[in-house]
Amino acid sequence: MSYKELVEQKLKEDTSISAYEKEEIIKLWQDIAEAYEKNGKDAIRDLILSRSEVIIKDFIEQRDKIEKNYFRGGKDAIIE
């Protein structure tokens, strides 16, 4: 078995994760392995970065929305 398959099997055997979570984790592992096969360690870094950045960006967007629509700072900045 290749390293990819061995790790996947180990994840499947992990009883501390629910079936749904397992599916997510295995998919993530497959993506990581594929990225590594294509372009080495950098590709893994890029993959994780892009996934996390999307979430972080979205979070910041929502926060900014709240701030812009409801918090707009300063007593003079609100009524034009």
Binding site: V7, K10, L28, R51, S52
Partner: peptide, 26 residues
């Protein structure tokens, strides 16, 4: 917006946990 923030916070946390699980398996 707040509810969405909560779900995104959970997502990042999950990503971190998943990566940790993968590392442990490796």
């Amino acid at each position: 917006e707040y509810k969405k923030m909560k779900s995104l916070e959970k997502k990042i946390s999950e990503l971190n946990e998943n990566l940790t699980k993968i590392m442990e398996a490796i």
